[in-house]
Amino acid sequence: MISPGNNAEPEKTDDCVLSVSGVTRTIAYHKILKGVSFDLMRGDALAVVGPNGAGKTTLLRVLTGLSRATTGKVDLRGSQGFVGHSSMLYDALSAEENLKFFSHLHGVAGNGVVANVLEMVGLEDRKHDRVATFSRGMTQRMSIARALLSDPELLYLDEPLSGLDDRSSTAVIGILRSLRSRGHAIVFVTHNFSAVAALATRVGYLVGGKMVLIEKVEERSAEQISERYREVVEHV
């Protein structure tokens, strides 16, 4: 039932924004990633699911270049944004100050870029407040706003819905869906099968540092995905 080849793998075309081949990563003698390969197209949203300790966060850090791959290659054709586990923001600065600062470092300051991303995540009315006063959901939206400053063709997200209440989750999924529909590619790590159902075009199962299967997932409910997940993970 589970073929070793990734039969849902799209063909390489000019639409390919990310090509990952044979990536391994060893941290303190532990082989966290044991050879991960896949390609990603524009408008694709890949959900990476897997048990705890499978190497999901490590995979994202290697893809973004924050960590070096021990072996293998990550070929990014376009710009990237990263929403990590931490917000990468300064608590003592306001939402607007944070975004202005990062927009300067991205070299995209001016032209209302900060106002644009604030509007996209629906935080215009809180822009003068310090990030420290934000709820988890607002911080997460700010984190997305920061990642969107450079208008990246590819967005990485590490557990985008963890710790969010239903309302915030819906808001975040709405933001990400609108990005996807505008042709941005998305790679996100999650434990949340409703997020997979709502957002993903493909799902990758990362088990024990290996991407054991990548398959198309559209038009499936959260329950179906959850069932399929158990099937795949237990099979390995």
Binding site: F82, G84, S86, M88, L89, Y90, F102, L105, S150
Partner: peptide, 17 residues
């Protein structure tokens, strides 16, 4: 410590500077 707090240093590294 300031850069480590919310992993802001990662944000800096991910910019073009």
């Amino acid at each position: 410590l300031l850069e480590k707090e919310n992993a802001a240093i990662d944000g800096l590294i991910l910019t073009d500077v």
